[in-house]
Design a protein around this nucleic acid. Sequence first.
DNA 1: ATCGAAACTTCACGCCGTATAGTTTCCGCA
DNA 2: TGCGGAAACTATACGGCGTGAAGTTTCGAT
Lengths: 237, 237
Amino acid sequence: MAETRTRGRRERLRAETAAEIKDVALRLMASGGPDAITLRAIAREMGMTANAIYGYFATRDDLVTALIDDVYTGLADAVDAAWAATAADDPAGRIRAWAHAFRNWALANPAGFRLIYGDPVPGYQAPEGGAAPDAAQRVCTGLTALAAAAWPRASEASEASEDFQWSDFDAGLLSKIRPAFPDLPPAAVALALRIWGHLHGLLCLEIYGHLRTQMLNPDKLFREELAQLVRSLGLTA
Amino acid sequence: MAETRTRGRRERLRAETAAEIKDVALRLMASGGPDAITLRAIAREMGMTANAIYGYFATRDDLVTALIDDVYTGLADAVDAAWAATAADDPAGRIRAWAHAFRNWALANPAGFRLIYGDPVPGYQAPEGGAAPDAAQRVCTGLTALAAAAWPRASEASEASEDFQWSDFDAGLLSKIRPAFPDLPPAAVALALRIWGHLHGLLCLEIYGHLRTQMLNPDKLFREELAQLVRSLGLTA
DNA sequence: ATCGAAACTTCACGCCGTATAGTTTCCGCA
DNA sequence: TGCGGAAACTATACGGCGTGAAGTTTCGAT
């Protein structure tokens, strides 16, 4: 049992160091943008050599991947929590809560938002698997839940002009979504993606500073967007 | 007059070299993304030393600024042309044409889109003036023209829930817009920005690869978005 | 022919990521 | 208790990056 204790100790130390590396990286990113994530700066901050980090992350891209995983998971947690904290019989309220949670998270973590949705860092190429795609699908699933709850009335309010089929969508996405929402038509998934686009667009413009050169308080625009959204979904009380 | 001839010659050579630098930079960007814009790579391509470029652009950021100016102007030209090529009495057609021109330009110049709307390049900070803000306002003005044409019917179709005032918007924007559209209420400008957000969001998701992991043909989603947009504006024939 | 400005090169510095090899630390077992 | 060896970390090096200072070439104006 001494063995397990010490092995546990080693692993714990290792995990703590890895966590500290990511922590410092996140702090650097928050203060200087995604480009400030340099192995040397992190090491400097931790009183180490840059190469020591290679014991924890094989490459800088691996570190960035880990950060993206963490950050994206944080976002997914935030929006899921907002979803769970609202009443199931109030689809409009859920949409509003979800959207505001998304925006608040983005405004609180602008560098994280850029890391996830923008060019993360020079020459970075996202790997195949990992937590980030999972988180992305959680976000997408949350969105689909919103669209699913709104669908009955939304489909009456305005029928789609394109006819969507299941073959229009990615199989991986569907494998997670269709079991959860058996009665959902393909057009509702398209609606979910469109809603995502609406929110993402305003947020991108705001985070990257394109909105503030035109409009003084993006808050108001965002609220108006949500109001029109729930209206167009036929959810106005 | 020999003086003017030779001075002209010098200046022409100088302008040609500057143009070639930007040209090479754009080519590098197109093939390797915005990060591929390095002074050394450009110089290598041109058979020069990296420092020779400093004779034309004081710093790398200045070069990037010039590129952004050019690229943004190109985008503004593209959407303006699409606007001008459609009938004034067909607001829905103009919206569709404008939006498709925007998307086609973005898909044809993904690196340019990132350069304008994303993190252009590590640590780049946009300067105060220049052609880029002008182009941005041209795009915004075009958008406002679309919203203005749609406004009469759009305002009936769904009244805004937020009450927008002129003080909500940037003075520089208004100084260009209000003279051109005297009868426009503030809410219509907000509508223009919201439309921008809708298109920008889908485009961002597509360009940065977040849509293709969910949906196989973003075309269809974009067309549906436009169809719902003109519908929500009360422009369906 | 010559002066001088403009164009360009060379060299240097400090950053960066990363590979290789060497050094220290310290756990697990005999 | 002492030792073998793995794990953590450092030292050194390479090439690429932006950029500054100084030197060199080119070439039009006088």
